[in-house]
């Protein structure tokens, strides 16, 4: 009896592993036919935007529970012009590629940094905003340059472009006393405020938004650690759909609507579409 049960469990585990590996390899969109990505959306009359709604100022939930942000305002305008209803779908950031590839969302539009690794699995629009990974310290801090930070504690958000930026700067990273990972940008900022870390590596847009809403002042180092661009991510084969959105963004840049939205959120036009 024992042996039988043992054999059955082994068979079951093998089966599970098979299923898991099939899932992990993920089915490539094998449509060899024409690109009907835009047609499908137009027909459905609905476009689903996927975001992690806890990333102010790009996309987040406001005090009334509405999802707002720079990316949201831009998207709303784009799809108003395209005559398609915009559906905003919160997702878990770790699962963004899954959600996109399984068709549960049609794009990732959430302060999504363009990088080569992501380009392998996602189709990006041209960049629409510049963002920098900057070093931030308390206003009264005596640190001013990168050299001042040797032997100090640095904090950043796990799995973020900040982490990537730091890894790209091996020399600087190796001179730090400690790198502290946080689940959230918010937690990292709070730790800087109370002195748990000496310096914070974070998106410039996030820290500037924080300073604007909270009225707190930080010192931001002039020289950024890395420079990145935000883009909108689509399924690899959805070229037509991406093209439509790109077109509309360029039109918005031309007629000044895009600049208007940027000023609302950042006080300046920091968009890079068509520039």
């Amino acid at each position: 009896m024992k042996k039988k049960y043992f054999k059955k469990s082994i068979a079951a585990i093998i089966l599970l592993v098979l299923i898991a590996s099939i899932m992990l390899t993920g089915c490539e969109s094998s449509s060899t036919g024409a690109d009907d990505s835009w047609d499908k959306v137009k027909e459905k009359g609905e476009f689903v935007l996927g975001l992690d709604e806890s990333f102010p100022p790009m996309g987040f939930k406001d005090e009334n529970g509405e999802i707002v942000g720079f990316d949201i305002d831009t998207a709303k305008e784009v799809f108003l012009r395209l005559g398609v209803e915009l559906k905003i779908q919160p997702i878990n950031w770790d699962a963004k590629e899954q959600e996109l590839n399984t068709g549960n969302i049609d794009c990732i539009w959430n302060g999504f940094t363009i990088n080569d690794k992501r380009k392998e699995s996602v189709l990006f629009t041209k960049p629409y905003l510049n963002n920098r990974q900057v070093l931030v310290v308390k206003e009264d801090s005596k640190y001013n340059t990168i050299e001042d930070l040797e032997g100090k504690k640095l904090g950043l958000q796990a799995e973020s472009s900040a982490e990537d930026a730091l890894s790209a700067n091996e020399e600087f990273k190796s001179k730090l006393k400690e790198v502290v990972l946080f689940d959230d940008n918010m937690l990292a900022i709070m730790d800087l405020e109370k002195g748990g870390i000496d310096v914070l590596l974070i998106d410039e847009v996030v820290i500037r938004y924080y300073m604007q809403t909270k009225g707190t002042s930080f010192k931001i180092f002039e020289k950024e650690l890395s420079h990145e661009e935000y883009g909108i991510g689509f399924r690899k084969n959805d070229k037509k759909l991406m093209g439509k959105v790109q077109e509309t963004l360029e039109a918005m840049a031309k007629d000044g609507k895009l600049a208007e939205i940027s000023i609302k959120w950042f006080e300046n036009d920091i968009t890079t579409v068509g520039k």
């Binding site: 806890s54 939930k61 959230d184 918010m186």
Partner: peptide, 23 residues
């Protein structure tokens, strides 16, 4: 269920925490 982006209590709290930069 936050893993599916469904907004229940925990996610609502996390979002609000991110918005006001407070725990």
């Amino acid at each position: 269920v936050t893993t599916l982006g469904i907004s229940e209590l925990y996610r609502a709290a996390k979002n609000e925490a991110a918005r006001v930069f407070s725990t």
